[in-house]
Amino acid sequence: MAIYTIHINEETKSVTADEATPLLWVIREQLGLMGTKYGCGIGQCGACTIHVNGIPVKSCTLPIDAVGDGQKITTIEGLSEDNSHPLQKAWITAQVPQCGYCQSGQIMQAATLLENNPTPSKSEIKQHMNGNLCRCGTYLRIIKAIEIASGKKELTTL
C-alpha cells in the first residue's frame, strides 16, 4: 500500500492504494466519482474512459502508480459543471443515450477528438470512437451528436 496524491477534476486528492490498483476503482470506490464505469476490465469496451493530461485513457487497465504527481486527470464529472460542454448539449439534442451505461466513456472519448480536430469527417469519427462499445446500439446517434457539436449538423431541438 502506498499514498498517492492525484489531481482530478481540478482538485488534489490523497488516496491509499496498492500500486497495481486500476485507477478506475480508485476513482469510483474511493473518490466516489461514479460516472466512470466498469464494463470489461481489459480495456476493450471504453466505459471507463477518462482523460489523463488531455489524452483518452481506459482507466480499468491503468494502475494508480502510473498517474503520480503532476498528471491531470479528468472524469465525466469534470468535463463541465452543468452539462454545458458542447458534446453534452449535442448528446441531449440527439437524444443519444438509451441505457446510458457506456455514455460517459463515449463522451470522454469524443471530447479528445474535437480538441484536436474540431471538424472531423465521419470516418475520422468512426476511427476515433471504435474502441467504445455500446450494446444499445446508439452509434448512429453518437456520430450525429459529434457532428452537431462540431458544427457539421444543425443544432435543432428534438
Partner: peptide, 21 residues
C-alpha cells in the same frame, strides 16, 4: 418529448446499482 433520463446519463450522475454508495 425529450427523455427524462438523458441529462443525467450525459453528465455521469445517473445511478445504476453499481453506483450506489
Amino acid at each position: 418529448i425529450p427523455r427524462i433520463d438523458i441529462a443525467e446519463k450525459v453528465d455521469g450522475s445517473a445511478k445504476f446499482a453499481m453506483d450506489i454508495q
